[in-house]
Amino acid sequence: MRKSPFIWLLSVIGFIFPGLNVLAATPLIDVEIKNHLFIPSEIIIPENTKVKLVIHNRDETDEEFESYELNREKVIIGNRKGIIFIGPLPAGEYPFFGEFFPKTAQGKVIVK
């Protein structure tokens, strides 16, 4: 986890706002993209916690992790990995999909 002085400063400022949670240790979850599928396609994370998703793209083609519900969008180049921080989130289901191959690359984040 990155902890530059810049971040520390911002997090201090950020404490004015409710629901801020940068200082807790960030859990790490690995996700694979293979044959335009997310494996696993269901990711369960705890409520009100920031999580670091490491997405390994095992396909030749690029993919874009996209979720309107999570408000995230990131291109993951073929045969490489990408890192996305999500949360903290209230409980619920947050579907995501691969924008480049949306019919197969589907999944959801379940916040419990």
Partner: peptide, 9 residues
């Protein structure tokens, strides 16, 4: 239901 099985959706 939608599910990933044997490498497909």
């Amino acid at each position: 239901q939608n599910k990933n099985i044997i490498g497909h959706r």
